[in-house]
Every structure is written in C-alpha cells, then in structure tokens.
Amino acid sequence: MMDELERDPLLSAALRDAAGPAPEPDWDALRGRIAARAELPLARRRAAVRAPARRAVRALLPLAAAAGIAGVAWTALTPRSPVLTPAERSEIDAAVREGLPDQVHLLLTGEAADAALLDVVDVRAPAERGG
C-alpha cells in the first residue's frame, strides 16, 4: 500500500498565493466527457460480441427453411397406410360389439334409429319412470 503523502504547508501556502484558491471540481462535466469519449469504443465492443451470433443465425436460417421444406415433402410423398380390409374391419367391429352394450354400439356405428338415443339414456322425468 502507498504511504500517506506528506504535505508541505509552506509549499501549499505559496501555491495558494500564486494561483489563488483551488476551484471546485465539476464532477458532472467530468462524467459527461468520460461518457462521450467511451461511447464509440463501447459500441464497437458490443457489436463485436453480437456479430458471431448474428452470423450463426444467418447461416442457420436457410438450413432451417430447407429442413422444413424437406419435412413437408417427406410427409406428403410417403405412402399412406392401406385402408382396412373387410376382414380386419369385421374383427374390429366384433371387438367393439363385445365391449359395449347393444344400443351404444348402434349409436357409434350410425346404425341406430332415431329413438335409439332415448333407449340408452332415459331422459324422462323421475315421476314418469316410476321412481
């Protein structure tokens, strides 16, 4: 650490007599000058830090667009799975019939008459149902 400076009172008095009292420093003006001189170098540094990221994004944008176009083309050109054969459809229908009550199966397959919904869900008031 630095030692405290030894001030000479005679030299201090001689300087005060020659130049007058020391002016008060204008800290705001000093701060403004420092900020003005540092503005351009700081802006250059910020731009230099952001430049690699911008270049990377600029390089990835065409790749991302090409990948999107390739993905759309791939899904559009791939063959669709074949429609179920009649044997497979009847097997699925049989499994559904076994797992659901008769009227619900009729409703799901569209084979139900208009009154089938009322057979499955009784919408009458409890007094009309006998309860």
Rank of each mutant, 00 (worst) to 15 (best):
M2L: 06
E128I: 09
D26L: 09
R89N: 08
L107N: 00
A67N: 02
A56G: 13
V49G: 02
P101M: 00
I34F: 09
A66R: 03
R124K: 00
A125Q: 08
A13F: 00
T78S: 10
E128M: 11
A73W: 12
A127K: 10
E6S: 13
A67P: 11
G130I: 05
Q103H: 14
E128F: 12
L11M: 06
D17H: 12
A13H: 03
E39Y: 00
D114H: 02
R46N: 13
E24S: 04
D17N: 02
D93T: 08
D26T: 10
L30E: 01
R50S: 08
R31M: 09
R89G: 12
A51H: 10
D114A: 13
R33W: 06
T85L: 04
D119G: 05
A95Y: 03
E39F: 13
E88F: 05
T85D: 07
D119P: 02
E91M: 14
S81I: 01
A73C: 12
G131H: 15
R54F: 03
L10M: 07
D28N: 06
I69Y: 07
I34K: 00
A70W: 09
R54M: 09
R97A: 15
E91H: 06
E88I: 11
E128V: 15
R37D: 08
A66M: 05
A65L: 15
E91V: 15
L108G: 01
V123I: 12
V96D: 01
A51P: 00
T75A: 07
T78C: 01
L63I: 05
A115H: 13
H105R: 07
R129V: 10
E4N: 08
L118F: 05
A65Q: 14
A112E: 01
A95L: 07
E91A: 13
W74S: 13
A22W: 02
A65I: 09
P86E: 11
P82M: 01
L61M: 04
D8L: 08
D114F: 13
L10T: 09
L15A: 15
R124G: 00
R54Y: 12
R97L: 08
Q103G: 15
W27N: 11
R44A: 14
V121A: 06
L10D: 14
L63T: 08
A67D: 05
A67K: 11
A48C: 07
L118I: 13
T85C: 05
D114K: 02
P101F: 00
D93F: 09
A56H: 11
L106T: 04
S12A: 12
H105K: 03
G71W: 05
V72S: 15
T85M: 04
G99K: 03
R80P: 08
T78G: 10
E39S: 15
E88G: 02
E39D: 14
R50N: 02
A125Y: 10
H105C: 12
P9E: 14
L106R: 09
P21Y: 06
V121Y: 01
I92R: 03
V49H: 01
I34Y: 06
R46I: 10
V104E: 01
P25V: 06
A56I: 07
G32L: 04
R16V: 02
L30D: 03
A48R: 14
R97E: 15
P86W: 13
P62R: 10
V123Y: 00
E98C: 06
